[in-house]
């Protein structure tokens, strides 16, 4: 496990428990994003599209969980620098999510350590769950 004093390449940052995805939160985000897609709140729309029987989380919410994980690890929101993701599967209301990741590089940028990490958003247990989003993130480590 990577600690702030020991950010070694190849070590993992602490798993971040997102918790259970809440359908009610999707409604608020639909308004904030001005996202008219009914798959985030209308069960009939989800079923008519053959996408299951639960609301589908907004993709940017899934990105935000990964941001939260990295910010929680470094303890400094201003140190977050970048995230690039590929959406692999839909996240549904009621899913239990965890963010996991591994440090892939530590470079000096502007006199500070910039850590790059491979990140995954997982559904279910981290041991045998499925990856619903993966990508790379970068954060400035505390001075």
């Amino acid at each position: 496990m990577a600690t702030m004093n020991n950010p070694k390449v190849g070590s993992k940052f602490p798993p971040y428990e997102v918790g259970i995805v809440d359908a009610e939160k999707m409604k608020t985000m639909a308004v904030l994003l001005q996202d008219p897609n009914p798959i985030h709140w209308d069960l009939d729309a989800v079923e008519n599209l053959g996408l299951g029987d639960k609301p589908i989380n907004q993709g940017p919410n899934n990105m935000a969980y990964v941001v939260n994980a990295l910010v929680s690890w470094i303890g400094d929101i201003s140190g977050f620098r970048g995230l690039k993701v590929r959406f692999i599967g839909n996240v549904f209301a009621g899913d239990r999510l965890t963010v996991v990741g591994t440090i892939t590089g530590v470079d000096q940028v502007e006199g500070r350590d910039l850590a790059t990490c491979d990140v995954q958003l997982m559904r279910g247990d981290t041991s045998d769950g499925d990856i619903v989003m993966s990508g790379q993130a970068s954060v400035l480590l505390p001075e």
Binding site: G19, L32, M63, A64, N68, I77, F80
Partner: peptide, 26 residues
């Protein structure tokens, strides 16, 4: 909007100096 976004995505609303980084996307 920053407060509500933090509430939706489970980020702490314990400081108001910086916005959630996802506002780069939003």
């Amino acid at each position: 909007k920053n407060w509500l976004t933090n509430d939706v995505v489970g980020a702490p609303n314990d400081q108001d100096a910086f916005a959630h980084p996802m506002f780069c996307y939003y």
